[in-house]
Design a binder for these strands. Structure first.
Lengths: 365, 365
DNA sequence: CACCCGAACTGAACCGGTTCAGTTGTCGCA
DNA sequence: TGCGACAACTGAACCGGTTCAGTTCGGGTG
């Protein structure tokens, strides 16, 4: 006789009650005498029975599963510190509630929409997280139309029926700018993320606003793509421009680190000749030379709260937007007093100066 | 009247056949005339019907889902380039086969075992990936006992009933050592990953073997933990040792980049005074200064093949171990000719020398 | 022309839970 | 003592598929 998972019928038989009674007892419903309930639970325990996820799933028409679709070039996904941490936060909540997370990784574009459609029509998930929001993001309408509950990370720039879990990017960027202004910088540049992304765009706007607040022009803005390669290229452009910045605010650490490397390759001292700030506070940020002044956000909590909100929404509770603690500046050693006396630039400002002997532009895929 | 998902019964009614016939037609089973099959498929199409994953799942006792449990400190997970890429590879295969991936992120230890147990007893998954294998890994026996099909990444150091998908670490490390030896280095150090991990241990052994092959002593081995902080500490120790190495082979890029930063903080020129190699070829590796010589492995394919193997196993096919293309050295600019003439060390070898003015040991969390 | 066979299809059981309309039994109260 | 109310529990339907034992029917064969 082959071992078989016990079913609810086995438990009912052993406890001498009906299947229904077992179900009620297990789910803590009224209508079962305390003594009976105990007997049932003991029987379940003795048999090592746990309700079948599949059976439950079918009868209550719920997947007990949440979905996360990541549309990103796989080659770049590895360097993004956001998703693993966010997912860890989500999981920390889901595990204790018997929920699971299904993850889809797709290329950007049509594959992404298809992915949501599949999740919806297969009934694979009860709701989805909408991350990496884009401007006028088509997913909002798509997911609404599919009838999938969802939670957005930050509030979309368009009408959205979904609750949003928000972390304001602006204070962090503003702090960074203020920190630099306090150090005497006036020619502060920004290497932005893609304009199409809400966070890329938002951080850029925050930068402009913060600069304006101090009466400084935000002319040195270079739009990159959050990758090291992009950050490198943007930094090259900025450092080669006639009014070279004395400080650069990067929209993420990855670009900042690449930027620092570019400067070092050009023989520009950091922070003496160029101050740099990042965004994310990745593990590496504190361990490069010089340690990176950056903005830290609590992505883990973000995941937790997003999961909690999505579950509440699925349970039918009406949920309002949640605003988390905004990100904060962490000052390290990549920022220092500005050395440029007013607009006067010293001769060393020429970025075409002697490159490091081992720096060859050929190896820069 | 509220819109309701069409069920197989609706399709059957519309096509004028029984539920069973629809099921057969859909699954391409024999016993349905071609004309009927067409009529059924048309009806399904007209109604926009797709079989319910839940119904199917219950009746065939399959979850159509694979599991991946990641046991890692969430704070460090973000900097690991492996999982996102691996998952992307897995997904690239699963999507087209109607499978999904559930991801669990747990703390190391008992929570990990509990996670596998839950996946198994809830019938959430049909099989799991065993990554980050440890020496004498308890998960092998656990998962076998739970009756879960599994695939291991690399072959465990213990009897295992599961097929393994292997990528040999040794050639990459060996290439790195040979590259350095070819540049005249003899005092080559290794900053290893944790000994308990098969890949940490394996790369370390590969280093020793490669050194022995060239008649060099592998005395400068410092065991770290794959994190930037760990790499930093290990590098400090190595650079402070009496017979300071002229080259360091790191077990991953994260530690290598942190190590380069330590050296730079101490005023040690890279690669002139110290050559460095990494492992992983993260996006950043090519974009730091100097660009990092490292070992590239195709993690995406690894994920694909692992998924294919696991699915085959679940389908009942007997599967043998698969060996993928080993990782390869990518030479960039962090390695150069050794400057140390024999064992003679020049006065600059004192690592306690003037630290960079902006390097403060306080900010090194 | 009777018979047999296989292809085509049906009906019902089944997967393992949940839920709801009923049934039973007990107790309080008039 | 009789009645109603309520708590406790049962039995069966249901979720949406798959599967299998049968049934029907048309054609080939002796």
């Amino acid at each position: 006789m082959v071992k078989r998972r016990p079913t609810i019928a086995d438990v009912a038989r052993r406890a001498g009650v009906s299947k229904g009674a077992v179900s009620y007892a297990l789910n803590g419903r009224p209508g079962i005498a305390e003594a009976t309930r105990r007997r049932i639970l003991e029987a379940a325990d003795a048999l090592g029975w746990r309700p079948s996820h599949r059976g439950r799933s079918l009868s209550v028409s719920r997947a007990f599963t949440l979905g996360l679709v990541v549309a990103r070039d796989p080659a770049l996904l590895g360097s993004d510190p956001f998703f693993p941490t966010f997912i860890a936060g989500v999981e920390s909540l889901l595990a204790e509630r018997g929920q699971a997370l299904v993850l889809q990784v797709v290329a950007e574009g049509e594959a992404e929409a298809e992915s949501y459609r599949r999740l919806a029509r297969d009934g694979r998930v009860d709701g989805v997280f909408l991350t990496d929001l884009r401007r006028n993001d088509p997913r909002i309408d798509l997911v609404a139309e599919l009838g999938l509950p969802a939670v957005t990370l930050n509030r979309p720039d368009q009408p959205s029926p979904f609750p949003a879990v928000c972390v304001d990017d602006r204070p962090g960027i503003q702090e960074a700018v203020e920190h630099l202004v306090g150090l005497g910088h006036t020619r502060i540049a920004h290497v932005a993320g893609p304009e199409e992304y809400l966070h890329g765009h938002g951080r850029c706007e925050a930068f402009r606003a913060a600069m304006a607040e101090h009466g400084l022009p935000a002319t040195l803005v270079d739009v990159a793509d959050f990758t090291a390669a992009g950050g490198m290229a943007a930094t090259r452009r900025l450092l080669g421009s006639p009014d070279r910045p004395t400080a650069i605010v990067y929209a993420n650490d990855q670009m900042a680190i690449a930027g620092i490397s570019v400067a070092q390759g050009l023989g520009i001292q950091i922070p003496d000749e160029l101050s740099v700030t990042g965004y994310d506070d990745t593990e590496l940020a504190a361990h490069i030379h010089p340690p990176l002044t950056t903005v830290r956000q609590d992505v883990f909590s973000w995941g937790q709260v997003a999961a909690r909100t999505l579950l509440a929404l699925i349970e039918g509770e009406t949920t309002a937007d949640v605003h988390l603690e905004p990100a904060q500046l962490v000052v390290r050693q990549s920022t220092a007093q500005s050395q440029s006396r007013d607009e006067q630039s010293d001769p060393r400002d020429n970025p075409a100066r002697v490159p490091s002997p081992h720096h060859s532009p050929s190896e820069e895929t």
